[in-house]
């Protein structure tokens, strides 16, 4: 934010890292959250899918805000990966149950 000559390379790398976490990590969270809703909501199949898709963007938003609000870039990645893992597990169980 200050004039460009004072910004060290490490700061720039950290911002890039946060941006990547926000864009790709955020999309991953949003997708997996939508998948979980599609598989677990007790409505008809099509309605669950629509609800999941419609609300996914809120998850995306929250992930992006987190990535830029937390203290370090590492925390940004950590904060993205944790819900990703949780949603992935939930989705995996849902898929497995649907198959059996």
């Amino acid at each position: 934010m200050k004039s460009k000559t004072t910004l060290p390379v490490s700061y720039r790398l950290a911002v890039t890292s946060r941006a990547l976490a926000a864009v790709f990590g955020g999309y991953l969270i949003a997708s997996l959250a939508a998948v979980c809703m599609a598989l677990w909501l007790p409505t008809s199949r099509a309605d669950a899918v629509v609800t999941g898709m419609m609300s996914s963007f809120v998850f995306y938003l929250l992930a992006v805000l987190w990535c830029f609000a937390c203290r370090t870039a590492w925390r940004a990645w950590f904060g993205v990966m944790l819900p990703t893992a949780a949603f992935a597990t939930l989705a995996g169980v849902g898929l497995w149950m649907a198959r059996t």
Binding site: S31, A38, A48, M54, S56, F57, L95
Partner: peptide, 18 residues
């Protein structure tokens, strides 16, 4: 505008269910 194109940009739940 996000909702209008949701099935294009967020296809994962469709693929998971169908």
């Amino acid at each position: 505008s996000l909702v209008i194109f949701m099935s294009m940009v967020m296809p994962a739940p469709i693929m998971a269910s169908y």
